[in-house]
Amino acid sequence: MSDLVMEKAAGEARPAAEQPTAGRRMAAYWPFVLPAVIVVGSVIVFPWVFTIWMSLHEWKIGGASSFVGLANYLRLTTDPRFGEAVVHTLVYTVLAVILPLVLGTLAALVFHARFPARGFLRGLFVMPMMATPVAIALVWTMMFHPELGVLNYLLSLVGIPPQLWVFHPVTVIPSLVLVETWQWTPLVMLILLGGLAAIPTEPYESALIDGAGRWQMFRYITLPMLAPFLMVAAIIRTIDALKSFDIIYAITQGGPGTASETINLYLYSVAFAYYDVGYGSAIAVVFFTLVVGLSVLLLYLRQRTKWTEAGAAI
């Protein structure tokens, strides 16, 4: 089912089965859609358009605005803080996609097996991703505390020296990724669990007859069949990791210094701490383009994995 997400977007290729009465039938359903069109138009589409409009202006909250063309975008190219934010965002995203993907795959393989109280245990496993991010962040902040935090105590039990976690520029991003991984591995697991359920048993049976080992079966049957689901999980994770805000803002606010300031956090500062909404809008536009661009790239890769998967199945 998770395929629907992208199938709908990629549905362009599917020709709609037009019937003679299709036009009249369509018209009959417009009243159902109209309220949503108005709401989506005003709270979703209007902000998109207005953001582009603002990004072409020198515009401070409470001050006058003047048209400056692409000046805000040019300013981005020479803004070192923005450049750093891009690097932080990419490092954070790469780590926060790969780790949940690997752990989520392992978790899905385990939860695919049948064992007592499986539903209940899966419910426990899923809790982190439904919990309120700010509440979670607050407790992690306490756990990261260098003197009083429980994490350094746990490290001391296995003989590892205490760390500064989110209080040191080098370890801050990995520490935040730890929280993000803890929180979002369950979503990857759920998507892949759906994928595992969809794999037929025949290939495994014939592989067993051919004397294949467990690893071989995983490598040559499970993994290729799971590839489309892995891609969906990767796309969703990429979007969410790029957009990550609550956890980072609540734990470090981009600190120490600006060591964990991602594009989203910088955008927040520019727009709502410096009230420079013109420049903030330009950042929002570039950021939006980055998110959509990366998603489309992954979608394209997904089409290819689908193709090779189909090839392998034949």
Partner: peptide, 15 residues
């Protein structure tokens, strides 16, 4: 789908 991809902050400034 695009609404899903859009960072929440980009809605905040105009609204």
């Amino acid at each position: 789908l695009i609404a899903r991809m859009t960072p929440g902050l980009s809605y905040l400034i105009p609204l």
